[in-house]
Design a binder for these strands. Structure first.
Lengths: 332, 332
DNA sequence: CCTATAAATTGGAACGTTCCAAAAAATAAT
DNA sequence: ATTATTTTTTGGAACGTTCCAATTTATAGG
């Protein structure tokens, strides 16, 4: 007996009547191999039932087809929607995704990435946990890793960043409310430790300032970015400002919580108080009332990520703002 | 210049004053290395900033630390809840998860697994897509792969299967309704192409039969396992049987849709019609009314999966039923 | 038909680890 | 102190691929 039973490039080469180098060229989709040889090799691969060994390839070539998705919190519906899109698109460009969840903890995030270093992943797609230091990311980049931030910006980090146009989003939604005649408008929910909060808040407040008159009033209440957070924030808001007319929510999830509380208080969302979300979760069109919100195209974000992955212009770190869209339903 | 700059076991060995074999033994947590050597090696690893190369290790040793999670549909909240738990527990036993989503398509599932074979993953944790052939899974097992089915059973597949006790669950919930005096009880939603449907239906119907009297009535309506599916099923049910008294839902998601439709029709869930879910999603306690449901402990499932992963008693395929719990809230 | 150039093919070395069988060191038994 | 036994340590081969430099084959130009 020669080899135990694994079929290698050598076996394929023998069967195809070429050298193992030629087989390797075919496997790596090189363009410097003749059509004839390619056909022979492909046939031999089929016949032998050969299976490519990525470990060997990765060891020798020092590049892998593995991308690490470091997500902040998979429990969050938007994150999970985004993860699905990422996983699919990454698969479409011939790679696979290792998924890890940082649980919004910067410490865990750094420990995870340290462990992932052993796998020679070709890139990190990170939705950074609050408190992520820019030096941490820069350090990875210096070591030659491709790092792509999504959804959240870390100031001072020399990485490509792909985020929705948060400012434009809340600007759009706030203006819609103002156009409809609402004046006492609150910005509800979200937490100041992450960048998107500031951006969404900014869109709201600039719209409010640009359209201010003697009746406009700004109110801002932070919260956890959970349904229950939204619920509690809504209670707080109503206690403080019972005459509030409309709400721009940090996210759909926050809006869900706020709506829930309103219903309990016999307040009709969309009738008594206007409400707008952000994210356009799958469920939002099924809510009652169907939630007016800002749509983020997660596939567009995923595609942008993949473009960075394949267009390997290494450390040209650029910031990509993905456009958002106002989806008018009947909650205001 | 000798080597470009990667630090290898040889460098560590040199620094520690031992052989590379000894370093390897330390790295693989062998017990046949003296405390003194181990200390020296660990110190050298620290000093040199050595990073273990899993590709090389996996190539040589023919086993990896990668587990593939092949999930049916990450969009589904329960699936995503389960995936989070799986990812965490898998990480806790020192492995990493490659995540792929089959989108409920058996074809895509098989294509994905074929591609994953190139990565020499140490196991497949699969929530099988409808239509998965037992031979397909058995074929993997024959090739020496560890295959663990979760949530869904495939009859005739020689793989370990970890599922919640579906029958007991709906038996519990149906009996609760019967105890409360409901008699005309429907089983709403779910699709007969997957095993859990039959199991949950069985729990319902045996409970109904065992407690039948002159007033009991069974009604069964299938649907997509989505919120909208639940909504449509509820409409259908009310059209057919306007005097229905209570509903056992295939899942919480179905219940959400049903509740939504009821509210639109000015029917008060929990008051006019009793309703019980299955899964106990995070949101279910926040619903109005808070949803009575069957709790599945996803961490328990994930732990059982990990037990199979580490207790590598290869092809001892056993079926593990994870207990469920009735959570009484106020929807019936 | 010969030469110059381009395109395609090739064998051997290398990637960084683990395995193996054998040697060395430590311990126990005589 | 010597031998038998166990525990540790070790260098070299192997895992299956890609890279490299060199060779062979094909194409173009005169």
């Amino acid at each position: 007996m020669k080899n135990q039973n694994t079929i290698t490039v050598v076996d394929v080469a023998k069967k195809a009547g070429v050298s193992k180098s030629t087989v390797s060229l075919v496997l790596t989709h090189s363009n410097k191999v003749s059509e004839k040889s390619k056909r022979k090799v492909l046939k031999a691969i089929e016949d032998t039932g050969y299976i490519y060994n990525r470990d060997a390839a990765s060891l020798r070539s020092r590049r892998s087809n593995l991308v690490a998705i470091v997500i902040n919190d998979l429990t969050n519906p938007y994150s999970s929607q985004l993860t699905v899109a990422l996983e699919q698109q990454i698969r479409n460009i011939g790679m696979f995704a290792i998924l890890v969840s940082s649980g919004e903890s910067a410490d865990q995030q750094s420990e995870l990435i340290q462990r992932l270093e052993e796998y020679k992943v070709s890139a990190y797609v990170i939705c950074p946990a609050p408190g992520t230091r820019p030096e941490f990311l820069n350090n990875l980049v210096d070591k030659g890793r491709l790092v792509i931030n999504i959804m959240r910006e870390i100031q001072g980090a020399n990485v490509s960043t792909i985020i929705p146009d948060n400012v434009a989003g809340t600007d759009l939604s706030t203006n819609l409310l103002l156009d409809k005649g609402y004046r006492k408008i609150a910005f509800l929910g979200g937490n100041k430790s992450i960048s998107d909060y500031h951006q969404r808040l900014k869109g709201y407040s600039t719209a409010m300032i640009n359209n201010s008159d003697d009746r406009t009033e700004q109110h801002v209440i932070q919260s956890d970015t959970t349904r229950d957070g939204g619920r509690k924030a809504m209670k707080l808001l109503l206690d403080r400002s019972p005459d509030i007319e409309a709400i721009v929510c940090f996210s759909d999830i926050i809006a869900y919580g706020a709506i829930e509380y309103m219903k309990e208080q016999q307040i009709k969302p969309g009738v008594d108080i206007g409400i707008i979300g952000f994210d356009d979760l799958k469920d939002s069109q099924l809510m009652s009332p169907p939630l007016t919100t800002i749509h983020i195209n997660e596939n567009q974000i995923a595609r942008a990520v993949c473009q960075e992955l394949v267009g390997a212009d290494s450390n040209a770190h650029n910031k990509i703002l993905v456009g958002v869209k106002l989806i008018e339903r009947s909650s205001c």
